[in-house]
Nucleic acid binder design. Structure first.
Lengths: 169, 169
DNA sequence: ATCCGGTAGTCGGATGTCCAACTATCGGAT
DNA sequence: ATCCGATAGTTGGACATCCGACTACCGGAT
């Protein structure tokens, strides 16, 4: 973090790839590395806003899912499907949301295997406040135009579809 | 993971955002969520290839940095700057690369504060093999065309520049 | 009525990332 | 020549993610 670079590390990597493995190998590598780095940058910006609310982005996403739900409750399994994370990740997220009092765990009325997560009043309040703050910084997408954002979402949708994020229904 | 979704979770989230916080808030949120998910998808694909080599993507990146270096050695600090990660992450990555014998730690000839990481012959061999395999699957960028990859890299470069990834030199 | 494959959630372990704090060392200013 | 801020790396802790394994439970088939 000390010395800022005087060159683009991804351009430099692309140069190495072209040299060692052929020109066709550079674009995929560069795109992937760019996604990794963009993820890191945006996450850091979001977490900076969320930290004062005792949240990080993954927990914020989980909280918003409950916030938008009809009853304020969802089975953990459904949350995992919607958030596209492993069941153990949901357990972990709800554990922490419960500790801060933003969510409570409850029993499912008919299926005793199922656990329901329910957003609390405090959780709703924090969700709204955090969302206002995130919207105010445009979710950390700082230099991008509306058109660039749309293009990004559209391109990445192809990747998500290919990975069977969902099937057109 | 059980039920595949029959709708696009990001489209659904965008709908909620438009409804609750106004139309302008949806594109940034959708783009950010897309980046998060794309990161997750691509990382999973890369790790699947790397796992048999006792590597994950972050360690692969570190190994390649050493592979391309003139002498096969770099100070840990320089690696952190190039990889754009916290010094503690470098310590962690080198720890594991050392355990698998792909890298060794050594002393800096003149500065006793500095630790040099050096790639081993086995490390070089694994680096080449893994790179061939990653190139063969186009780094997990499956459905994207060359043009889409270039556009992605270009758009995200703006984000990186804004975050002071490097300054034009 | 029982058995048994599938489902829901959790636990333990590995990986990676960051932050705060600490040790050791360097190198310029006094 | 010494002091002192800056630098290099590590350690400990928090968070998030996955995988494999496990318990508890559901529900249809025999």
């Amino acid at each position: 973090m000390s010395d800022p670079l005087t060159f683009d590390p991804i351009n430099e990597a692309a140069r190495q790839w072209r040299k060692h493995w052929g020109a066709a190998t550079a674009p995929p590598m560069a795109a992937v590395t760019s996604i990794m780095r963009a993820h890191q940058i945006v996450m850091a910006r979001l977490d900076e806003v969320l930290r004062p609310h005792d949240l990080r982005f993954p927990r914020y996403e989980a909280l918003m899912l409950l916030y938008y739900s009809r009853t304020g409750s969802l089975p953990l399994g459904k949350m995992g499907v919607r958030l596209q994370v492993h069941p153990t990740s949901v357990t972990s997220l709800i554990d922490r949301l419960e500790k801060t009092g933003y969510v409570t765990r409850g029993a499912h009325p008919t299926d005793r295997r199922t656990t329901l997560a329910t957003i609390t009043d405090e959780g709703r309040s924090v969700a709204e406040q955090a969302t206002h703050e995130l919207n105010a910084i445009k979710f950390g997408t700082l230099p991008l135009t509306r058109k660039q954002l749309a293009g990004l979402t559209e391109t990445l949708r192809a990747v998500r579809l290919d990975a069977s994020d969902y099937h057109a229904g």
